[in-house]
Design a protein around this nucleic acid. Sequence first.
DNA 1: TGACGAGTTGACCGACCGGTCTACAAGCCT
DNA 2: AGGCTTGTAGACCGGTCGGTCAACTCGTCA
Lengths: 205, 205
Amino acid sequence: MADAGTRERLLGAGAELFYAKGYNAVGVQEVCRAASAHKGSFYYFFDSKEALMTAIIAERRGVPGIVQGAPPPGVRGRDLAIMMWDAATAEVETQHRLEGHIKGCPVGSVAAEIATQSESIRGAACGVLDFMTETIAEVVRRAIAEGDLADDADPGAIAERVVAYIQGALLLSKTRNDPKVFADLKAGYLQLLGIESQSKAPRSR
Amino acid sequence: MADAGTRERLLGAGAELFYAKGYNAVGVQEVCRAASAHKGSFYYFFDSKEALMTAIIAERRGVPGIVQGAPPPGVRGRDLAIMMWDAATAEVETQHRLEGHIKGCPVGSVAAEIATQSESIRGAACGVLDFMTETIAEVVRRAIAEGDLADDADPGAIAERVVAYIQGALLLSKTRNDPKVFADLKAGYLQLLGIESQSKAPRSR
DNA sequence: TGACGAGTTGACCGACCGGTCTACAAGCCT
DNA sequence: AGGCTTGTAGACCGGTCGGTCAACTCGTCA
C-alpha cells in the first residue's frame, strides 16, 4: 500500500479505520494522516466523507473470512459451506488474539450505524449483502445438485436466512467480545442450511 | 415524560436520539435540548456522554417488540414464540410507515457501533443480550414441557442461536429498509426454534 | 518556451464537540 | 436567621469537525 496511488491509500486507510472505530468516530483528518495524504487531496478525489465510505463499501471485493470472490470449483457444496464458517471463525479468533476486539462485519457494522442516516452508504451496503446472498445461494444450489440437500429447497430463501444469521452471529461475538460465541453458533448455521452435523448424519466424505 | 424528573427526561431523550441516529452522531447539547435540560444538569446527573448511554442500556426494561418483561403465563410456549416474532414484525412495519426508516435493535445497533470503543457500553449491551437469551430460553423450556419440542433440546443453545438470528434479521431489514425482509425471515426463526411451520406440520391448535 | 491539466499542500472557515466552572435559586434542617 | 444540599443556568474552554480555497509543483504536449 506504501507506493499505491493517493486515492487507493485513502480507500485503504478509511476501510481500516472505519472498520476498527466506526464511521462517525473517525474524522477526515485522521484518515488523511493514516494515508499520508492531505486534506486537499482528499477532497480532490472524494466529494465528501460520505462519498469515501460509499466508495469503500461499493468497491469492496468480497467479505473477509466468509465470502471472497466466486466459490472455487471442484469443492463439494456442503464442504464449501462448512469451510466458509470455519474461515470466519478463524478470522474472528485472529482479531481477538491480535487486537483484543472482535470487529464484526465491516459492512454490517457500518450499516447498523448509519443505514438510517445516509442513503448512499445504505445502498452500497445493500449491494454487498446481495453479493453475499447470491454467493451462498450458489453454494446451496451446488449442494442440491450434489444430492446433499433436498431438491425442493429454495436457495434464495435459505441464503437470505443464512446471511441474517451470519450477521447476527458476528454482532453477538463482537458484543460479547468472545470468539467462542461465534464458534458455538455453527450448529445453527448448519441447521439453517439444512446440512446435518456429522455426528447425526455421518454420510459422505 | 413531560413532567418527569430531569434525569429521566435525559434518559428518554437520549434513548430516542441514539436509537434514531446512532451514538456518535448525537451530541450532548442535542440531548439536552430534546430533554429541555441544560448542560450543567446533564453533567450533574451523568459523568459523561458514555455514562448516559451505559445507563440507557442498563436501565432498559426489555426490548421493544420482541421481549418485554417476563413472558405472560397461560400462553403455550410455541404460540408465545410465534407472537414474539409477529410483534417484532409489526414494530418494524410501523417504524417504516411512520418514520420512513427501520431502526433495527436499539441495543444491537449501538453495540455494532461502539462495542470496540467503550467497555462500559459493551458490558451493558451484553446484559441485555443475556436477558433476551434467558427470556427465549424460558419460552423454549415451556415448549419442551408442553411436548411441542423434543425434550433433548438445549434451551440455552437454541436461545443463543435465535437471538443471533433476530439481531441479524433486524440488521438486514434495516439495511435494506424493507419490512418485507424481516417478515420473510420468519421461517428461519421457526426452524431454529424447532417449531415446524403450520403448513408442514398441522398438528395442534 | 510556455500553456495546461493533474495532483499536492496547508492555512483557514464557522460550527460544533465533550466537558468544566462559577453563580445562583429553592427547599429543608436546626 | 443561617447554613447545607440538591439542582439549574449558561458562559466558557481547547480541540476537532467536515469542508473550502488559493497557491503551488510537476510532467506533458505543442
